[in-house]
Design a protein around this nucleic acid. Structure first.
Lengths: 212, 212
DNA sequence: ACCTGCACTTGACAGTCGTCAAGAATTTAC
DNA sequence: GTAAATTCTTGACGACTGTCAAGTGCAGGT
């Protein structure tokens, strides 16, 4: 928890704390829209406030500074992001169903959330320059790696075959594929999504040792 | 060529043009240092000039605006970057030599040029938000893809085995591996480089169909 | 010796940025 | 219904940004 939230928790009732937290996420949601449109470099607090129904001063009432606001945004984004994939691995009954389902899920989120994904990569890169963001980025990255690993393990189990890669390598590979597809998609390539679906499924099939 | 350079070419002697171009690359080199240290978002023209031996005004004498300067920087970076890898594929005589040599080259450039690489990823991400950079980024990305493809094809030829992936997928995979390694390396993980060397070599070996 | 044109510096401009204090507006408590 | 505490707005601050006009110093040519 943040210091501001802690202060609130000390001084106010539980109900006020909830309201406080609720407005924080509300503002973070508005900020997330602006951030995903403009990117980290060109997003100002005034611009964020203009895309909400409040004035720019309110941001410093709910967040200590710009860093805390953006950190909160990224954490909020993570919660949404990982949740979606887990349905895929849970619903799949056969290996082939999982492979095509995973590919379809990747393609779907590429189409639907392209701007949020480019924001994620933007923040991950910013963390290479500003250590303030590094901790949160590492946490999100690990949760994404675990998400990918659940898919891979689930596929290996359904095919009853041993896996040939470790979790970090598997994640790096799929992430590389997704990033290239995102780049093409944002550049206007309409086929990027369907290509991502097939290449993702193909790669998943290849991550277990061939039968022969 | 840029408009500014064209104007110079019209008005001045060839020698003056060379001098002009030389100073441009000189300033771009200084800018490259600042950019790789601070990242795109926080690099100002005054900061760039302060890391050179000139004042901030001179940048607008040699470059139309900030975009042209940074574009020039990125292009200059590309030239250096691709050059290094080609030595590897040219000198390798056996498949195993190529695999380990490629891994070693990846680890070496990770160690030596980590800051330049994170700048590259920063610029590639910026191009997702600012279309001004997209053209140059695409060009560099394609040249990197070709570089990777030369490695992969060279390895397949030496092992006399057919390849199982297309060029864009191979590039995406290696790029994903490198990016993860870069992240760990910048975060202080000393082992990131050696791990990258082995995982890179392993992946290259796996890109041809197994004999069995 | 003087002049012309190039290379570079200086200082200022209009704008934007994050931050915060002071106060208005609204809600809550009694 | 009034007082107190909250939520939110407004306006200002100093700092920083990209850009550019004006001017300095200096070279080479005549």
């Amino acid at each position: 928890m943040t210091e501001v939230a802690d202060n609130k928790q000390d001084r106010f009732t539980r109900r006020q704390v909830d309201k406080f937290a609720q407005r924080r996420t509300e503002l973070a949601q508005a900020a997330l829209i602006t951030l995903s449109e403009l990117g980290y470099a060109r997003t100002s607090l005034r611009e964020i406030a203009q895309n909400s129904e409040f004035s720019h001063g309110v941001l410093h009432y709910y967040f200590r500074d710009k860093v805390e606001l953006i950190t909160h945004c990224v954490r909020q984004y993570k919660a949404e992001c990982v949740k979606r994939y887990d349905e895929v691995v849970d619903t799949a009954r056969t290996a082939e169903e999982l492979a095509t389902g995973f590919g379809a899920a990747m393609a779907a989120t590429l189409r639907a959330d392209a701007r949020l994904h480019r924001l994620w990569y933007d923040m991950r890169n910013q963390s290479l320059f500003e250590p303030v963001f590094r901790e949160d980025v590492v946490e999100i990255d690990q949760s994404l790696e675990r998400m990918i690993w659940r898919i891979v393990v689930g596929y290996g189990t359904l095919r009853e075959q041993p896996l040939v890669v470790a979790a970090p390598i598997a994640y790096a590979m799929f992430d590389g594929l997704f990033q290239q597809a995102l780049f093409k998609f944002v550049s206007g390539d309409e086929q990027a999504a369907v290509e991502l679906a097939t290449t993702t499924a193909d790669m998943l099939r290849r991550l277990v040792t061939p039968t022969s």
